[in-house]
Design a protein around this nucleic acid. Structure first.
Lengths: 214, 214
DNA sequence: ACCTGAACACCGTTCAAGT
DNA sequence: ACCTGAACACCGTTCAAGT
């Protein structure tokens, strides 16, 4: 049932996941679901468990590799592996954010993350701050809002009108330059993967410096 | 109308904002709204404009202060001021995230942010990376997921069952220590404001170091 | 130009009733 | 123990009709 729910969301987006559709895919006749589950939120709870379980399985194979390496390497590999799982489930960030109770499977992931930092010499206090600083990045995603200086929106397209460009001189300048440097970004799209890694490295480096100073 | 929509969301949460309720508050009889607006998304678009406008007004007064100071001070003050506005509109983060088109008012905010970095010697390229690294933090919020090691959930409460604590040794240890240090966090709540500032400073410091190295 | 009532196509969910 | 049909209370939205 959870597997079916994940499939629906993967294929048609999270908004296409309705109780009626889920029952249909399962062959059941609609409202039978409520015998097995209290409400739709419980389905969503189960779906984050599925994704978190997937992440835990993937990182289990990763952790062995950078055994002698620095902790930032291990953390980086772990987070990027988690990100790959997340990219297969584009609805997952939204569902993660809307959950109010902590899934035990997610807690297991966080426990391993704290363990990794502890092994690297972090105090519990600093590890706690570190989790907050990383935020959702520790699970491999960030919310992209409207993508500053990247979207091919009417206000930022290459043919940005003169009068609007005058009102936003710095964005116009930035777009012109960033757009020119990278042939793939002429349409204004950013490379989300490398931007994610950039931000991640800034934070990991900063945390490592704090670890050394402590 | 937008003001009324913001009021409803402020008081009853974003889920209490329905077209019928909005019309009721406005004195109109329900479906008249569709003469002035194409659909509900257009209302939500307008609401982020209201909030962004509020932010722009607040930061306009802030920017003058740290004139001779370092850019990180000015950026920090700007972002924390934006955060105060956001805290008055708890629904705003969710609405910001769901928008697909960039509001001109938000673009104005980002333009000023890029301008601030340009004045500090940032290249357009680094400023672009910086925006991505800051993500939603530049507007004053982060998504808190389930709050690692903080929520008074059944799995993490002070009376965490022995068997669960055994499965999550690092989280249990962290919770015990962090919970003890701060008398206000005995219930497991984190101080979101100081965690926000911690993460923000990590990123700003890291960006400043990259600026110097460039 | 502006508003309205009735209706449509959808939700999640309840509940009494079936096997 | 498990499933179902009919119904309820809500959505956003359409549309023909009013002033």
């Amino acid at each position: 049932m959870l597997r079916a729910a994940v499939d629906i969301a993967d294929k048609g987006g999270i908004e296409s996941l309705t109780m009626r559709r889920l029952a249909e895919v399962l062959g059941a006749e609609a409202m039978s679901l409520y015998y097995h589950v209290a409400n739709k939120d419980e389905v969503l709870d189960g779906m984050v468990d599925v994704v978190a379980q997937e992440i835990n399985e993937v990182v289990a194979g990763i952790d062995a590799a950078p055994a002698g390496g620095e902790w930032t390497k291990a953390m980086r590999a772990r987070i990027l592996a988690a990100r790959e799982v997340l990219l297969r489930h584009p609805w997952a960030p939204w569902v993660f954010e809307t959950r109010t109770t902590a899934s035990p499977v997610v807690l297991r992931y966080y426990d391993a993350v704290v363990g990794l930092m502890r092994d690297a010499g972090f105090s519990y206090d600093l590890a706690h701050h570190a989790l907050h600083a990383l935020g959702s990045r520790v699970l491999g995603f960030t919310q992209e809002l409207f993508d500053p200086g990247g979207e091919p929106s009417d206000a930022e397209a290459a043919d940005m009108p003169e009068d609007i460009a005058d009102q936003l001189p710095h964005l116009a300048g930035m777009l012109a330059e960033v757009g020119h440097d990278d042939p793939d970004s002429t349409l204004g799209f950013c490379d989300y993967q490398s931007e994610f890694e950039f931000g991640l490295d800034v934070i990991l480096d900063g945390l490592d410096r704090l670890r050394e100073g402590a």
